[in-house]
């Protein structure tokens, strides 16, 4: 059996978790919003170096604005966490640092990437001021719609965990 790494994708609802995974796994996108409940799990094998593969087991969690309600069972055995917020909706990042603290208290010592999604909808300059104003640091700025930085994000994580 291949090396497998469990990645949990979480964040507030409607931020684009499902869309990011769909873009990464199927290279497709839909404008329709179908609310995810519980958890959807998909697998994707990626090449981290020539002749070396890792299978990423992607856990797409139900979005919630109260991260304390995430079911602990979902987080067992997690190797990496992707926290997604929506750059167009302040409510999804206004309490970002507090949200991250909650996540870290639930899964400590696990690499965590902070991702601002839907960057296709805003101007880059506006983003910068927004982030400085809200004291936010991100690892990736993505668009599931255009595919911008989506592969980079997951490949980066795969290499990190490998």
């Amino acid at each position: 059996m291949q090396v497998s790494k469990k990645i949990v994708v979480l964040g507030h609802f409607g931020v684009g978790k499902t869309s990011l995974i769909r873009r990464f796994v199927e290279d497709s996108f839909s404008d329709n919003y179908k609310v995810s409940i519980g958890v959807h799990i998909t697998k994707k094998v990626v090449e981290v170096s020539p002749e070396e593969e890792v299978s990423l087991i992607l856990w797409d969690l139900e979005g919630t604005d109260d991260l304390t309600t995430i079911r602990d069972a979902y987080l067992l055995g997690t190797h990496g966490v992707v926290f997604v917020f929506d750059v167009t909706r302040p409510s999804t990042f206004q309490a970002l640092n507090a949200d991250l603290d909650i996540v870290r208290s639930k899964i400590s010592k696990t690499p965590l990437l902070v991702v601002g999604n839907k960057v296709d909808l805003v101007l880059k300059e506006d983003l910068e001021t927004l982030f400085t104003k809200n004291n936010i640091e991100t690892n990736f700025l993505t668009s599931a719609k255009t595919g911008n930085a989506v592969n980079d994000l997951f490949l980066h994580l795969a290499k990190l965990l490998h």
Partner: peptide, 21 residues
Amino acid sequence: FYTFESIKDTLENALLFSCVH
């Protein structure tokens, strides 16, 4: 079911995962 790999060693009685697609 890959999750089985990571839980089997620490599994005591029972463990529930709800709402799994």
